[in-house]
Amino acid sequence: MANIMIRRDSKGSYQFYLPKRDLEDTIVSMEFDTPEKWGGEIKLNNGGAYYIEPQAAPARLPYSVRAKRLDAAE
């Protein structure tokens, strides 16, 4: 489990940030992306995948959340 931060970049897509490793990447897909259910498996541009416990969408981004690593790139 690691703390990650999710924000929106200037183009409007989700941006993933893992402070511990200074890893920054765009999120290419998120399993659930509705106001009631948000999170699930997220896929990064670099090929990595993380899992966020599905929850209500955060009221405001950026948002820090715990995530489980499913598949790290490199």
């Binding site: 931060m5 924000r7 940030y17 402070p19 405001r60 950026p62 948002y63 820090s64």
Partner: peptide, 12 residues
Amino acid sequence: NYISRHMEEKYG
């Protein structure tokens, strides 16, 4: 960028 991110999250 670290501190800017932090301020974005904490203070909007």
